[in-house]
Amino acid sequence: MTSTSRSRRGLTAGLGLVTALSLAACGGNLGGGDSADAAESFPDGPITLLVGQDAGGSTDLIARALADQASDELGVPITVENRPGANGAVAAQELAGAEPDGQTLMTFVGSLAYITPLAVSEDEAVDIGDYTVVTGISLDDYVLVTSPQTGFTSVEDVVGAGRPVTFGTTGVGTGSQLSQELLFAQAGIDATAVPFDGGSPTLTAVLGGQVDVGAVQLGEAAAQIEAGELVPIVTFAEERPQYLPDTPTAVEAGYDVPVQQSRAIVAPDGTPDEVVTRLEEAFQAAFASADYQAFNEERLLTPDEIGGQELQEQWTGNLENYRSLVEEYGIDLGGGQ
């Protein structure tokens, strides 16, 4: 993150810092800052887990499911705090300004790191390289759906329709938009993006035939797919998600568009290695719990519990890949239209 945006840190972060400092002082940790000290005394009081989305959404539920389990492991409470705004950029900004002692963490959404930067101006783009990643969490798949009335069942059908199509997206700078833009560009389909405000309005528009197709997260459409009200065309996963085994991926259908929503636990840059390791162990233990695994099944999430380093490379790789694809096909996620 650039220095300008750091200096623009909200009042909230400032207050949070004051509170954190005074708490640390009360705890008698007057030395402060020294990494060995920090590691020994970690965790020093309750941990704050920031969520950049509204309470009740997927990211929030994941954070809460993990917080319960990891807090047992660490022996301190983990409180989930929602700081919704700008697809998580508000929370990310606060995290960047927090003390790097492992007491403040965030449930980061991948799209903020590798899709949103393609749509917003450079100084608003969040760089995952400015943070320390603790661990990956899981993958959420996007599925391209249509109403049975369109008669589309495969990408070929859409191509074969020989007419311009409209597609609903869950918003600008989302995986829903990127995946469809890439797919239709590669398939040579004349398609117009119609952004909606989130998954549920997008689905309603597809169900009502307002748009021809739309891409939403798998968990949002699963019930309607099962009921036959929606037809899945492709998923944008790397491999077929276990929850939708009969629907091909876009890659299988011949298009190079793997787009998934990934989530990770992220700490401020400069968090001591010992603390990161301790946190990683705690979250691995949370991943292993039966309750959490049942939660993943229920929300149709594919576990992706990879190490922090690996995840960081993956996300950076995604961003570069998407950036070159977007340039290659002349797609403009923002502006343009």
């Binding site: 600008v172 700078g173 502006g335 239209q337």
Partner: peptide, 13 residues
């Protein structure tokens, strides 16, 4: 919501 352009935000998140 359609272009991602900032309107009257004065650079504030």
């Amino acid at each position: 919501g359609f272009t991602g352009a900032e309107r009257f935000t004065f650079g504030s998140l």
